[in-house]
C-alpha cells in the first residue's frame, strides 16, 4: 500500500474527450502517475464498482468526474464517489455546467426516445419498442439505468469541491489544477481552477477590437472569410469570449474560430447565456423595434449558441417540461 494520494476518474454522460484530455497530458501523465495512485478509471483500468464500495469514506483524495448526470447509474456512481472522496472535482464542461449533452434539456425523455427509436429515418421499429429498465426473460433479468428527463450538472447532484473547466480542458489547465490540488495549498471550496477573468484579457486580437463596437449584422463562421488578425466579434461572429472565463490560451481564436463558451462564466455571473445576451444586444446598432428584430434575426439559435455548454447550469436549467392539459 503506497502513501500516494488516491485518485479516481469517472465518466458520466460524456463524449470521452475529457478522458482523452488526461491522456493528452503526454509526458506529463508520467508525473501524474508518479504522484498519485489511480484506484478507479473505467476507461483505462480494470477496477470495479465493488472496489470503490469497499473503500472507507474519504479514502480517495480526489475524484475527477466528467460528464453530466443523465441516468440513474450515473447518479448512483457520483454519490458513491462523493462519499468515498475527500474532494470531488468536476472535470470538463459537462460536469461543470451540463455540457453539450445538456442541450437535451430542450426535450424530455419521451420526445428523445420517440425520435431515436421511432421517428428517425433509418430506424425500423414497427412495434415501437423503447428501452426499459428491467427485462425478464426465461428467468434471466437485465437492468438498464433509468433515463432522466433532465440532464444535470455534477453540482446539482453532489457537492463539488473544485472545477476544471473546458470542453475538453487543455493539458496545461489540467496539470496546473492537479499541481494545485497536490500542493496542499487548497483554494476555497467551489473554486473553478482557472483565472476568474473573461477570455478577452488574454486574447491575441484584443487590440484590434474597436472601443465603440456596434453590430448591424451577425454572421456565422461559414458566411465570412474570417480575417485572422481581427477580433471575431468585430467581424460579426458570435464570439462568447467576453462572457467566458479565460485561461484556455484562446486556442479557438488562434484557430480562427469564435469562442463558444466552454469554460463557463466568471464567478460574478449567475447565467452565462443571459449575460452574453445582455452584452451583445447592447452593441446592436438599432433603436427601433423593426431594425432590432431584423438584426437579431441573424442569430438563428440563441439557446444553442449562448447555452451550448451551460443549459443545465443556467438559471432556468431547461426548457419547460410539457404541461399536462
Amino acid at each position: 500500500m503506497s502513501d500516494k494520494p488516491k485518485v479516481a476518474f469517472y465518466w458520466c454522460a460524456s463524449c470521452g474527450g475529457c478522458e482523452e484530455a488526461v491522456v493528452d497530458l503526454a509526458e506529463k501523465i508520467l508525473d501524474v502517475a508518479a504522484a498519485v495512485e489511480i484506484v478507479f478509471w473505467p476507461v483505462a483500468m480494470d477496477f470495479k464498482r465493488a472496489d470503490v464500495e469497499a473503500m472507507e469514506d474519504g479514502e480517495i483524495f480526489a475524484a475527477f468526474i466528467n460528464g453530466a448526470v443523465r441516468t440513474t447509474e450515473q447518479e448512483e456512481m457520483v454519490r458513491l464517489l462523493r462519499a468515498k472522496s475527500q474532494a470531488v472535482v468536476a472535470f470538463g464542461s459537462c460536469a461543470h455546467l451540463g455540457g453539450i449533452p445538456g442541450l437535451a434539456n430542450l426535450w424530455d425523455r419521451e420526445t428523445i426516445f420517440r425520435t431515436v427509436y421511432e421517428d428517425s429515418p433509418t430506424t425500423d421499429n414497427p412495434d415501437r419498442i423503447h428501452p426499459l429498465q428491467r427485462y425478464r426473460d426465461n428467468g434471466h433479468e437485465v437492468e438498464l439505468p433509468g433515463f432522466f428527463d433532465t440532464v444535470r450538472s455534477l453540482d446539482q447532484v453532489v457537492e463539488v469541491d473544485y472545477v476544471i473547466p473546458g470542453c475538453a480542458p487543455m493539458p496545461d489547465v489540467i496539470s496546473n489544477a492537479v499541481a494545485t490540488l497536490l500542493s496542499g495549498d487548497l483554494p476555497p471550496a467551489g473554486t473553478v481552477l482557472t483565472p476568474d477573468v473573461a477570455l478577452c484579457e488574454g486574447c491575441p486580437r484584443i487590440d484590434s477590437k474597436p472601443e465603440h463596437l456596434t453590430i448591424s449584422e451577425f454572421k456565422r463562421p461559414h458566411e465570412v472569410l474570417v480575417d485572422e488578425e481581427v477580433c471575431l466579434l468585430a467581424q460579426g461572429l458570435l464570439c462568447l469570449g467576453p462572457a467566458t472565463r479565460g485561461g484556455c490560451g484562446a486556442v479557438c481564436i488562434e484557430g480562427n474560430m469564435p469562442c463558444t463558451g466552454c469554460f463557463g462564466p466568471t464567478s460574478h455571473v449567475r447565467d452565462q447565456g443571459g449575460k452574453y445576451l445582455a452584452a451583445i444586444t447592447s452593441l446592436v446598432d438599432a433603436d427601433d423595434p423593426e431594425t432590432i428584430e431584423r438584426i437579431l434575426a441573424s442569430i438563428p439559435d440563441p439557446v444553442g449558441t449562448f447555452y451550448r455548454y451551460g443549459l443545465p447550469g443556467s438559471l432556468l436549467h431547461r426548457k419547460r417540461m410539457p404541461v399536462d392539459a
Binding site: 430542450l106 447565456g273 445576451l277 444586444t281 432590432i292 437579431l296 440563441p302 439557446v303 426548457k319 417540461m321
Partner: peptide, 23 residues
C-alpha cells in the same frame, strides 16, 4: 438618454430566447 434603447434590444432577444425555452 439611451438606457431604454439597450433595454429594448435586450428584451427582443430575451423574449425570443425564452419562448425557445417554453416561456
Amino acid at each position: 438618454q439611451s438606457g431604454n434603447y439597450k433595454a429594448l434590444r435586450r428584451y427582443h432577444l430575451l423574449r425570443r430566447m425564452l419562448t425557445d425555452l417554453g416561456v
